[in-house]
């Protein structure tokens, strides 16, 4: 690891000012992504600002939903009674990620800001526009099995690896941010961005902005939900494709639906049109097949990830079946 200065913030403002005034600094929460990247020389911050002493680890009930502090651990959040009761989809997605040990370290804020697992990004000897703007995209003509089928650009075809974020975008969550210019609230779908010409920017956060909490509004999606993660082994591996599916049923009729995918784009991929196609229809395989068809419109694969064009719609149908408990 490169040597760095270490400071521990006891006030949010101190952390924000220090980060805003020094582009070579980084916040550190659980450290499970940042330290990994630092050990490999992918990120080389000159100063780490430890935010773990800030009072942002509470999970609270609000009038219209849950407020989960950015420093709440992935494990604590996944096992929290209120989360299990009101947002079971989020608990399922969290438990599908990483390992029990890592979930005991990883925070909610750090999880949504974890960086892509693209192997070219991870290897400083390789070209990568995200790590080193202008150096080219190694994956575009290289080995791109894990890469995007939606929303990519010719500058970057990486996917966002977080499971938790797929559930949060489906549940219409919001991110609370505190920065040099004050506080703001972003719809979860607006936190991450598509690569475009600036793949080095994963999110729409500005320098110094600190995530303080995420809000998950109350919804009817407390029963018929399923997070399906397809990966190369049964556990402790990143998703090839994942699907967050949530249904609100009246008998066998779909009153409302939420659908999002992971492992397919530079951001958690909400499937709004497919959701619309589900509403008012019976919860049957035919309905789910149609939603999957709508969801896949515009998908385009590269040399090694053609399989995702088949895997993704199949995963959507399966996740919806599991959510509805249709066999």
């Amino acid at each position: 690891m490169n040597p760095f200065q270490y400071v521990r913030a006891t006030k949010a403002k101190a952390a924000i000012d220090a980060r805003a005034g020094d582009a070579t600094s980084q916040f550190i929460a659980g450290g499970t992504n940042l330290l990994d990247l630092m050990k490999r020389g992918v990120m080389t911050p000159q100063r780490l600002i430890d935010i773990n002493k800030l009072p942002f680890d509470k999970i609270e009930r609000q009038s219209n939903g849950l407020r989960i502090g950015a420093l709440a651990l992935n494990s604590t959040t996944a096992e929290d009674k209120q989360v299990l009761e009101r947002a079971p989809l989020l608990a399922q997605a969290l438990n599908a990620g990483a390992s029990a040990q890592l979930r005991n370290m990883a925070t909610v804020g750090g999880n949504m800001l974890q960086r892509t697992r693209c192997s070219y990004f991870y290897d400083p000897a390789m070209p990568c526009n995200k790590r080193e703007p202008g150096s080219g995209c190694g994956a575009l003509e290289g080995y791109n099995r894990m890469h995007a089928i939606f929303g990519f650009s010719d500058k970057c075809i990486a996917v966002h690896p977080s499971d938790m974020s797929v559930a949060l975008v489906a549940l219409d969550a919001a991110v609370l941010v505190s920065g040099p210019k004050g506080e703001r609230r972003l719809a979860f779908g607006d936190l991450h961005r598509l690569p475009g010409d600036e793949p080095q920017r994963d999110t729409n956060l500005e320098a110094g902005e600190l995530i303080t909490a995420v809000e998950v509004p109350d919804s009817p999606f407390t029963k018929h939900v399923h997070y399906l993660k397809v990966r190369e082994r049964a556990s402790y591996a990143f998703a090839l494709v994942s699907v967050a599916a949530a249904l609100s049923l009246d008998g066998n009729t779909i009153k409302d639906a939420r659908l999002a995918m992971g492992g397919v784009a530079h951001k958690p991929w909400r499937l709004t049109e497919a959701e619309k196609s589900l509403i008012g229809k019976p919860a049957t395989e035919a309905t789910f097949q149609e939603a999957a068809r709508v969801a896949m419109q515009g998908a385009k694969a590269f040399k090694h990830n053609q399989y995702k064009l088949k895997l993704a719609p199949n995963a959507i149908v399966q996740a919806l079946k599991n959510a509805a408990a249709v066999s």
């Binding site: 040597p3 200065q5 270490y6 400071v7 006891t10 403002k13 101190a14 002493k53």
Partner: peptide
């Protein structure tokens, strides 16, 4: 910077 530094606790360690 000065204001910020005072709100860090004693754990300020250079590289």
């Amino acid at each position: 910077v000065r204001a910020a530094e005072t709100e860090f606790d004693e754990k300020v360690a250079a590289a």
